[in-house]
Design a protein around this nucleic acid. Structure first.
Length: 725
DNA sequence: AGCACGCCGACT
DNA sequence: GTCGGCGTGCTC
């Protein structure tokens, strides 16, 4: 009997057998099958002759691919992901494929909708469209032949296209999508500066052997010319006819970044970001896979882009938390990049000014080559970092009087000031002054955040919202006051302190969509705003040369957090923010407000810099038995009642404690005990040896799934957890 | 994950 | 009297 074993997108750790009925079904190709009263797209993992289900087997309904969409190499990577992250193979396969392919779209390049000039359009000249310059721009673009509609949409509005179509000047045609047929031939190198000694050393170290896995930690502060090292290392790869994959954090993928690569090499760059639709993603995936693109740049999931001739992987800002997927297949794109580079035998660059402790440790242990770039003369920003002790100080919106004065003098000198606060909204809580009641989201048991402008209170953990109450929900008193400070309040209060200063607020509430953020950032660097108030967004990827004063409003939260990585993240934030402010002739000044000015981590960071801090923090981690010296696996369970998650994890813990290869800690309530109406409990497994926990869990998974208590909970496994929320 | 089957409350 | 609530169980 000819049977195929199919990976299906269901949360079961198994494959499903179907009769292939003589159809040609390649391993790695997709099939459509009926499964529990519905039709699913799956991928054939193997062929076989018999099956324990022989009498119940259904036949494959449709073969979607003549050639595999996942070749042997990718099936191996898929199995690695499933084993390492203890995730069902069917869902891993599903995650690896572009959404269009998951839905069953053809994997072959499709004809694309293009716009072409009609004979009438051909004859039109600029004068005919004197009063419609946008329409003329479109006509001019099409003079050399049809252009794909999706390309035109990037810079021509649909109204213009419609107008021209209505006038009979243009028409839609279907034709094979024309990509740059040979980027290797089109490759030209423009505006290449001469590298300094450090850069030259780095480039030669990275490109010493283009055909071998050469992992490198490239540590370089802002202004040290890290991107130039990327560019010149890439050059060697491209010239050898091989492709480069670049991963960047979510916020770092700006048109400028892409343009920099495009300009240097004069070739098309494939871009994968969150605003693409399914077909656009599929197109980049196909072009990368067929080798038609020399460079692919994208965020987390871009690590799954297949390359015909892989040449190099670069992970920029490797410390960034957005590389870790927080649901489903909880992979870390940086870690998977390491595995992939090793398997494909290509150089790997992990670049950052503030390496994660995991990566730094790997470098210090000699697993990665550690290359350092110091700031170049003339570009160096020497931000002076200082601590503001706010004990007993009369704060105004959480800011010490001395710093209000510093702000005033920086404004007077015509410079910009940046305030960093980690809270969106007006205030993190609404308190009744009479009875002390705090308005709380019942689903998460956390205070509602006050949003005054939107006239509502909102839970930042489940986004439940209500109109801003006028009376206390408990006692009815109308003296209810916002407690604490968020970006919105800072903004409002500073308006009254500095009425003539133009302010701009930068957080996910005020900045909607990518273009808006770009516009705001441009306005800032044109000097149209003097005061910037914002959250994390400010620390990522944007340089503010005219900012000479940076204030971190509250550094205390991270110093005493239950999350052991909080101090590391604060240090990265401080270092990143300092690097983004000021320039050589206008050095910046940074103030950290704290009630604990003598805190050893803070003191070490400020006096000795990130590198020293990180080594010190590594020693602490080692002493405390924490990552990267211990490998962790977190098992989470949640349910609408408080007892079931505990019952399940208690049972699990008892089973797990039968072995002695790793520690079993818990179960304990999650840092956020209740979220979206569900009680959350977790069990932490810890070992000094990589992989032993996975091995044990894998062999006992079936037992766990048979526990009666498992029925009442939703549970998941997080390998190398990044946060414990 | 879906989706059906199955047994208890407020509605035309 | 029914529509529908979501608990439990199965899918080759």
């Amino acid at each position: 009997m000819s049977i195929v074993k199919v990976a299906l997108p269901v949360p079961k750790r198994q494959l499903f057998d179907y009769l292939s009925n003589g159809l040609e079904v390649p391993v790695g190709g997709r099939v459509r099958v009926s499964f529990a009263n519905r039709t699913l797209v799956g991928v054939v993992m193997a062929h076989t002759d018999d099956s324990p289900w022989a009498d119940k087997l259904k036949a494959v309904s449709e073969v979607l691919d003549e050639a595999p969409v996942l070749d042997e190499h990718w099936l191996t990577l898929a199995r690695w992901l499933a084993d390492y992250y203890l995730h069902p193979i069917g869902d891993v396969i599903h995650t690896l494929l572009p959404v269009a392919l998951r839905k069953g779209a053809s994997a072959l390049p499709q004809d694309t909708e293009c716009l072409a000039l009609t004979p009438t359009g051909q004859q039109h000249c600029q004068d005919d469209l004197r009063r419609a310059p946008q329409q003329w721009r479109l006509i001019a673009r099409l003079k050399d032949g049809p252009v794909a509609l999706h390309t035109l949409r990037e810079d021509i509005s649909s109204a213009v296209i419609r107008a021209c179509r209505d006038k009979g000047l243009v028409e839609t045609t279907l034709q094979a999508y024309a990509v740059q047929s040979d980027w290797h031939a089109a490759l030209t190198i423009s505006d290449k500066p001469r590298p300094n000694t450090e850069q030259a050393l780095a480039i030669s170290a990275i490109t010493r052997d283009l055909e071998a896995y050469t992992p490198v930690l490239l540590e370089g502060v802002t202004g040290s010319g890290k991107t130039e090292v990327y560019l010149q290392s890439i050059e060697a790869i491209l010239k050898a006819g091989r492709q480069v994959l670049i991963l960047v954090p979510e916020i770092g993928l700006t048109p400028q970044t892409v343009q920099r690569f495009q300009r240097r090499f004069g070739i098309d760059v494939g871009v994968l970001h969150s605003n693409l639709n399914d077909n656009q993603r599929l197109r980049v995936w196909q072009q990368a896979r067929s080798g038609e693109l020399g460079i692919v740049i994208g965020t987390r999931s871009a690590i799954f882009t297949p390359l015909a001739k892989p040449g190099m992987i670069i992970v920029d800002e490797e410390h960034d938390g957005s590389f870790k997927q927080q649901d489903g297949l909880r992979y870390h794109a940086r870690d998977f990049a390491v595995v992939r580079a090793k398997m494909e035998g290509v150089p790997l660059i992990l670049g950052t000014a503030t390496p994660s402790l995991e990566t730094l440790n790997n470098a210090l242990q000699g697993r990665y080559q550690h290359l350092t770039l110091h700031a170049r003369a003339g570009v160096a920003t020497h931000t002076v970092q200082q601590v503001m002790d706010i004990k007993d100080q009369p704060l105004r919106v959480g800011i010490a009087p001395g710093l209000i004065e510093r702000m005033r003098s920086h404004f007077a000198a015509g410079q910009q000031v940046m305030l960093f606060i980690n809270r969106r909204g007006y205030a993190p809580a609404l308190l009744c002054h009479h009875c002390g009641h705090i308005e709380t989201c019942h689903r998460c048991e956390r205070p509602f955040t006050v949003h005054k402008q939107l006239n509502k209170i909102q839970c930042h953990h489940c986004s439940a919202a209500r109109p801003l109450p006028r009376q206390c929900g408990a006692c009815g008193n109308d003296e209810i006051v916002p407690k604490g400070v968020g970006t919105e309040q800072l903004d409002a209060e500073l308006a009254s302190i500095f009425p003539h200063i133009s302010r701009v607020r930068i957080d996910s509430d005020s900045v909607r969509g990518k273009s808006t953020l770009e516009e705001v950032l441009a306005a800032i660097n044109e000097g149209r705003h003097q005061l910037l108030i914002g959250t994390q967004i400010l620390s990522k990827g944007h340089h503010f040369p005219n900012v000479t004063l940076v204030v971190i409003v509250d550094a205390d939260g991270a110093l005493f957090s239950a999350d052991f990585r909080a101090a590391e993240h604060l240090a990265q934030l401080i270092t990143q923010l300092s690097g983004r402010a000021g320039r050589a002739d206008k050095p910046g000044e940074m103030w950290l407000q704290t009630h604990h000015p003598g805190h050893p981590l803070l003191q070490d960071l400020l006096h000795n810099g990130y590198g020293h801090f990180a080594r010190f923090a590594l020693q602490e981690r080692k002493a405390a038995g924490l990552p990267p010296f211990q490998y962790q696996v977190l098992i989470r369970a949640e349910a609408t009642d408080a007892r079931s998650p505990f019952a399940f994890l208690d049972e699990l813990a008892t089973l797990l404690r039968q072995q002695t290869d790793f520690q079993v800690l818990g179960p304990v309530p999650a840092l956020m005990e209740k979220r979206q109406g569900r009680y959350r409990v977790q069990l932490l497994l810890q070992s000094t040896r990589r992989g032993v926990i996975q091995a044990w869990l894998a062999t006992n998974m079936a037992t766990f799934e048979r526990l009666p208590s498992v029925r009442k909970v939703r549970w998941s496994i997080d390998v190398d957890p990044q946060d414990f929320m």
